[in-house]
Design a protein around this nucleic acid. Structure first.
Length: 426
RNA sequence: GCGGCUAUGGUGAAGUGGUUAACACACCGGAUUGUGGCUCCGGCAUGCAUGGGUUCGAGUCCCAUUAGUCGCCCCA
C-alpha cells in the first residue's frame, strides 16, 4: 500500500509553524477588538445556490473553482470559496439587521476552498481572515475597513505595502460606463484576446484588468469608470478618499482595479506586497463595498462593506520582509529522574506542578540522565528538577536554573509552593 | 484548465549505465558510571516519488502517473 498524502493544494501546519499562525491570529483578533468587530462563525459548506447568487454566476470562482458535490440527501453543497456570502446569509437568516446597535460589524477566520492549480500563495484550502460591516453606507466606514486592514499588516511589521483604490460607482454609473466600454472596444473586438472577447459581452470592465491585452492601444484610451461616476458616486468616493487622507493612509488610485466578484460597487481596494521576491502573486487582500448583496440573498435593503486577507500570504509577506515574529517557545520546567522509584515519584510531582499552573514535562523515553538534560536544554527549559535516589532518600529534590546554572536543594513537600513563587516573580 | 523545471535518508544535498548509494547538519549512543550548551569517537537510506519499459546490468536512459515548484488565467 502506498502512503497516503494530503490532497493536492492542502497543507499541514505542524508545531514550529503553527505558533506563527496562532500569533498572527491573536494579533488580528486583538485589532478587531479595538475596532469593535465581533467574531462570527459560519459553516464551511453552504447550499451551492448561495454562492451562485451571492458571488455571481459569471465569476471564475463560480464557473470553475468551486468544490461542489451532492450530499446523501441529493442537495448540491459547496465548500465555501469565500466568506462574505456566508456571513451575509447568516445576517439575513437570523434577522441580525433587526438587532440594536447597527451597523453590524463582524469578523471571521477560517478555511476557504477553491479548486485551482496550486502555486506559491495559492492553495486549494487556504485560511482567510475577513471583516464585514453591514448596515451603513457612511463613507467613513469604508475608510474604517481599509484602515483596519492596513493596521493589521503594519502592526505585524510589514512596510512594503501598496493600497490600491478605485470606485466602481453605483448601478447607474456602472451601466453608463459599461455602455461606453462596449462602444469603445467593439471596433477592436477581433484584436483582443479570446477571454476579452467573452468579457466584452459578460463583464466589459474586466477587459480593463486583462494582462494580455495590456499593450493594446485601445486600452490607453478606454473610458475610465471614474469619468462615468454620477454625482452621488463621485461624492461618495471623494469622501472616502478625504477620510483616508485625514487618517494619513496613503493610497494609489487604479481605475482598472475591478475585483473578481460580482457583488462589488462603489469602493473597491486591494492591498499588495511590494517586497522583493514575493513572487507572482502580490495581492495580500482585497475588499470593497457590496450594497445590494443582502437583498440578493433575501434580506432587506442593506449596505455592506468588507475585506478579506489570506493568512498564508500574510505569512509569506512577513517572510519576504524578513520579519521575525515575537515567538518565544520555552518550557517552564523539566523533571529529570534517576531510577525507577524516582520515576514514579516524579509523575506525581509533575502532576502537582501542572495543577499549580506550571508548564512541565519529563522524559518518557527512558533516557540516561545526560540525555535528559540535553532534552531539557533543547526544549529551552527554564528550570530542571532532578529527582534521583539520593534526593528520594532525603525527601528532597534538586532545582537547577538552566540560565545561571545555580542549584539548590528543596524539601520534596515544599517544591510545588516554591515553584509557584518562582514563577510569580517573573 | 495550459506551459516550463524538478522528485535520492529527518533536512540540505553528491552521484557524467557497471561491485557494499559520498558529504554535511539533525538525531541516537559512548568518552564524562548523577547534570545541558564545546570537543572527540561510533551508529543512522523499507535502497534513490509510484508504475511500466530499454539493457547482460538503471538512482543514472525512455514513457506514464502522482506530487512539488515557477509562470499563464484568476484571485486571498
Amino acid at each position: 500500500m502506498s502512503n497516503i498524502k494530503g490532497p493536492r493544494g492542502t497543507q499541514d501546519i505542524l508545531p514550529g509553524e503553527v505558533e506563527k499562525w496562532q500569533y498572527v491570529e491573536s494579533v488580528l483578533a486583538d485589532i478587531c477588538h479595538r475596532y469593535h468587530y465581533k467574531e462570527v462563525r459560519t459553516p464551511v459548506f453552504e447550499h451551492t445556490e448561495l454562492f451562485q447568487r451571492g458571488v455571481g454566476d459569471s465569476t471564475d470562482i463560480v464557473q470553475k473553482e468551486m468544490y461542489t458535490f451532492e450530499d446523501r440527501g441529493g442537495r448540491s453543497i459547496t465548500l465555501r470559496p469565500e466568506g462574505t456570502a456566508s456571513v451575509v446569509r447568516s445576517f439575513v437568516q437570523h434577522k441580525v439587521y433587526g438587532y440594536p446597535n447597527q451597523p453590524t460589524k463582524l469578523f471571521y477566520f477560517g478555511p476557504m476552498f477553491r479548486y485551482e492549480r496550486p502555486q506559491q500563495g495559492r492553495m486549494r484550502q487556504f485560511v482567510q481572515f475577513g471583516i464585514e460591516a453591514l448596515g451603513s453606507d457612511d463613507p467613513a466606514i469604508d475608510a474604517e475597513v481599509i484602515a483596519l486592514a492596513m493596521n493589521a499588516y503594519q502592526e505585524l511589521g510589514l512596510t512594503s505595502l501598496k493600497l490600491v483604490l478605485n470606485s466602481l460607482g453605483d448601478l447607474e454609473s456602472r451601466k453608463n460606463h459599461r455602455e461606453a466600454l462596449i462602444a469603445h472596444f467593439k471596433p477592436h473586438k477581433d484584436e483582443l484576446c479570446e477571454d476579452c472577447q467573452m468579457r466584452l459581452e459578460t463583464n466589459p470592465m474586466r477587459v480593463l484588468d486583462c494582462k494580455k491585452d495590456r499593450e493594446h492601444p485601445a486600452m490607453e484610451t478606454a473610458p475610465s469608470i471614474l469619468d462615468y461616476l454620477n454625482k452621488e458616486s463621485r461624492e461618495y468616493f471623494e469622501t472616502v478618499k478625504s477620510v483616508l487622507d485625514k487618517m494619513g493612509i496613503p493610497y494609489v488610485i487604479d481605475p482598472n482595479l475591478v475585483r473578481g466578484l460580482d457583488y462589488y460597487n462603489h469602493t473597491a481596494f486591494e492591498i499588495m506586497s511590494e517586497a522583493e521576491g514575493f513572487g507572482a502573486i502580490t495581492t495580500l487582500s482585497g475588499g470593497g463595498r457590496y450594497n445590494g448583496l443582502v437583498e440578493e440573498v433575501g434580506g432587506p435593503e442593506t449596505a455592506g462593506i468588507g475585506f478579506a486577507l489570506s493568512i498564508e500570504r500574510l505569512l509569506m509577506a512577513l517572510d519576504a520582509e524578513g520579519i521575525e515574529l515575537p515567538i518565544d517557545e520555552q518550557l517552564d520546567c523539566y523533571v529529570v529522574t534517576v531510577g525507577d522509584e524516582a520515576k514514579k515519584e516524579a509523575a506525581s510531582i509533575v502532576y502537582q506542578l501542572r495543577q499549580a499552573g506550571i508548564q512541565v514535562d519529563k522524559d518518557y523515553a527512558d533516557k540516561k540522565m545526560k540525555a535528559q538534560f540535553k532534552a531539557a536544554d533543547r526544549l529551552r527549559a527554564k528550570y530542571v528538577l532532578v529527582l534521583g535516589e539520593d534526593e528520594l532518600q532525603n525527601n528532597q529534590i534538586n532545582l537547577k536554573n538552566m540560565d545561571t546554572g545555580d542549584q539548590q536543594t528543596i524539601k520534596l513537600e515544599e517544591i510545588v509552593e516554591h515553584m509557584k513563587k518562582e514563577f510569580k516573580e517573573d
